[in-house]
């Protein structure tokens, strides 16, 4: 796939930099029956972001955006930890947290599809109020819990592999199944690619959009469980803070256009890995970790400029054919970086 070329190159470069600074970077060892190594760490710490980004990919493919996922992360973790701290069963706690997440996502979808509010505005409401809700659930405290079963989700191992990684793989598989085996992907891409044509072809876009926002929230809820499980506590204020921005970034780096249409789950996973590897790299090459944000800014700028048709035309113009002055000015330009 040509559109995955650039993300792959960037990831490879990042890994290369790491290998130069830490020669044994690529080695993976077996310790106490668990897999260890820098690569494993990248996957493990990047798991929540990958989850959130997967959901975000589908939202963006419909031409939308979801700013509220960070708040959903906090709410889900808070609710699960609260339940467990009140001696509820882990399964019940998890089910309750995920159920609430789906409900919140459906609410977003309802605002976007049925009420007709712009996605960025509609999800802003939950982004703001959701933080308050999360704190309401935890009563402003950081709820600390001790529960080995719950710990498994974000911090445990299964068959030597960190459970979080397995969870991401499972969600990826389920998502891939939904969008590529079932017809969800086709209908999402149709709605995002040409909403009016889709309506005239009988696509029930309202339902699709609600499902997609609900799914994004479900992914965020799962990420919330993972994060709170990993630290055995729920912090309504800071859990998942700004993860929506990283997720959007991962999707964009992965080659899915913010205008909607064609999407790539593989690209998104790559994008999330790039962001996580960037963080790891900054630690490993000895640059102060505080500068991570600077590099992120740089990556966002470069990726968006490369994908911008106007930038290509104006700055890289000479290397390309002049754009044909076709009689279709509204046509979307394909983004294939």
């Amino acid at each position: 796939m040509r559109r995955l070329l650039w993300p792959l190159v960037i990831l490879a470069l990042l890994l290369l930099v790491n290998v130069v600074f830490t020669p044994n970077f690529l080695s993976i060892q077996m310790r106490d029956g668990h897999l260890y190594g820098s690569l494993i760490d990248i996957l493990r710490f990047g798991a929540p972001l990958m989850l959130v980004s997967l959901g975000m990919t589908l939202v963006i493919a419909t031409g939308g955006i979801d700013l509220s996922v960070g708040s959903v992360v906090a709410i889900s973790g808070a609710l699960a930890c609260l339940q467990i701290s009140q001696d509820a069963g882990v399964a019940w706690a998890v089910a309750l947290a995920l159920g609430l997440s789906v409900l919140l996502g459906a609410w977003n979808g309802f605002l976007v599809a049925t009420v007709g509010i712009q996605p960025i505005i509609a999800t802003l409401i939950l982004m703001v109020a959701g933080r308050g809700l999360a704190q309401l659930i935890t009563d402003g405290q950081i709820i600390t819990i001790v529960n080995p079963a719950y710990k498994l989700i974000g911090g445990g191992y299964l068959l030597a592999v960190p459970f979080g990684i397995l969870l991401v793989l499972a969600v990826l598989a389920v998502t891939a199944f939904l969008v590529r085996r079932l017809a969800l992907g086709l209908l999402i891409e149709a709605v995002g690619g040409n909403a009016e044509a889709s309506r005239l072809a009988g696509v029930r876009s309202k339902g699709i959009i609600i499902v997609v926002y609900a799914f994004a929230a479900l992914c965020a809820g799962l990420a919330g469980l993972m994060i709170s499980s990993n630290v055995s506590s729920a912090d309504g204020n800071n859990a998942g803070l700004w993860i929506e921005l990283d997720a959007i970034l991962a999707v964009v780096i992965g080659g899915t256009s913010l205008l909607g249409g064609r999407f790539s789950l593989g690209g998104t996973i790559l994008g999330a890995l790039i962001i996580q590897t960037l963080t790891t790299t900054i630690y490993s090459i000895g640059v102060p970790p505080e500068t991570t944000l600077l590099f992120k800014a740089l990556v966002v700028t470069v990726v968006c400029l490369i994908q911008s048709p106007a930038f290509r035309a104006k700055v890289l113009g000479r290397r390309r054919r002049p754009p044909a002055p076709g009689p279709v000015p509204g046509e979307k330009v394909r983004v294939s970086a």
Binding site: R181, L182, A183, L184, L186, L187, E189, A190, G193, N194, E196, A197, S198, L200, A201, G202, V203, R204, G207, I208, V211, G261, R262, V328, G330, E331, K332, R334
Partner: peptide
Amino acid sequence: KRDGLVPELTVRENIILALQATRGWTRP
């Protein structure tokens, strides 16, 4: 352009779009 095609999608996807829409996304 405006009311018919989804330009990014393939010929196959455009052809089956209406049929798929009548079946919904759960029954590919």
